Amino acid sequence: MAITGIYSITYATDDLERGTQFHKDLGLNLVREDDAGADFELLDGSQVLLRGLASRDLPPAYGESVCGVREVCWAVDSEASLYELAGDIARDRELSFSGTAECQFLDDAGLSVRLRVFSLKPISAELDPTNAPGRVERLNKLRTWYERARPQQMQHIVFCSPKPREAALFYVERLGFSISDIQEEGGVFLRAPGNVQHHNLYWQRADEYGFRHVSYGVANVDEIMAGAAFMARQGVNSHLGLGRHRISSTFFYYLPNPCGGDAEYSTDSDCLDDHWQPRVWGRAFGHIWWLAQVRPNEPAPRVRLANAEDLKLV
Rank of each mutant, 00 (worst) to 15 (best):
R143N: 06
G134H: 01
P133Q: 05
R150D: 01
S124V: 14
R148T: 07
W145S: 12
N131W: 05
F118N: 08
W145N: 04
I123T: 09
R150E: 12
A125Q: 11
T144E: 06
T144N: 02
E147W: 05
D128G: 02
I123V: 15
T130D: 06
I123P: 12
N140I: 01
R150A: 11
R148C: 05
K141F: 01
T144K: 15
K121C: 01
V136Y: 11
L142V: 01
R135H: 03
I123K: 14
A132P: 03
N131P: 03
L139R: 14
L139V: 05
V117G: 08
S124L: 14
A132D: 13
P129M: 09
V136G: 00
T144V: 11
K121P: 00
V117M: 12
V136D: 02
A149M: 06
R150M: 05
V117T: 13
A132F: 12
R148W: 03
K141R: 15
L142F: 08
K141W: 01
N140Y: 08
V117E: 08
N140T: 01
P133L: 10
L120Q: 02
K121E: 10
P122F: 09
P133C: 07
E126P: 00
D128V: 13
V117L: 11
N131F: 07
N131L: 06
S119M: 05
A149V: 04
K121V: 04
K121H: 09
Y146R: 02
F118A: 15
T130P: 00
S124K: 13
Y146M: 02
R143D: 06
R150N: 05
V117R: 14
R143V: 02
E147F: 09
R138N: 04
L142Q: 09
L127N: 11
R143C: 03
N131S: 07
P129G: 09
P122W: 09
G134E: 00
N140Q: 05
A149P: 03
P133G: 07
D128L: 13
V136K: 07
L142T: 02
P129N: 08
P129A: 08
N140C: 07
K121D: 07
K121F: 07
R143A: 15
R138E: 00
G134C: 02
R116T: 10
T130Q: 15
A149Q: 05
A149I: 03
R116Q: 14
R148Q: 12
P129V: 07
V117H: 10
T144P: 01
R135G: 00
P133F: 12
S119W: 00
L127E: 12
R116A: 15
T144G: 00
A132T: 08
E147L: 10
L139F: 15
N131E: 08
V117K: 14
N131K: 03
E126H: 09
G134A: 03
R135L: 10
Y146D: 01
N140H: 08
R116D: 04
E126I: 03
R148S: 13
E147Y: 08
